[in-house]
Amino acid sequence: MAVIFYISSAVAILSTVMVITRMNAVHALLYLIVSLLSVAVIFFTLGAPFIAALEVIIYAGAIMVLFVFVMMMLNMGTKAAEQERKWINPRMYVGPAILAAILGVELVYMLASGSNRAAGFEMIGPKAVGISLYSSYIIGLELAGMLLLAGLVGAFHLGRQDKD
């Protein structure tokens, strides 16, 4: 399992780098999908098959399809890629690089201080996820539900056509 974990982690990192460096938006999205799929494999190797399946269904299967849908509506051609190329210059990378470096230092510190534990000792099935969602995390779940409902009502309001 450890080998699979490292391979899928490497794929996740590589594909995420490709997401950032692609000029064509649809190609970038395709790499993002690959990245999400490899994260799903990581979840699976860590003993969370339910989360792995949800990652594929919701992120890779639904949200990314919507992204692609919007891309298709905009139908950006070579002109957009050219514009992208002009926008991204090396100076753009300074800010994110500093933030990422802070995270990297934190990670190294955590590893060095020895307070790290290996994950994935037990298999968490769908039932266990459901029980903890509807008992200890019920407030978070309801709040998320309300947020989504508000979004739904808002989208309906924006998309409604006045019949007059």
Partner: peptide
């Protein structure tokens, strides 16, 4: 024979949209 078989099927069918 996996314990998330239903979800696996749904995941594959949603990826098929691509």
């Amino acid at each position: 024979d996996i314990n998330v078989g239903v979800l696996f099927f749904l995941a594959m069918s949603s990826l098929g949209a691509y």
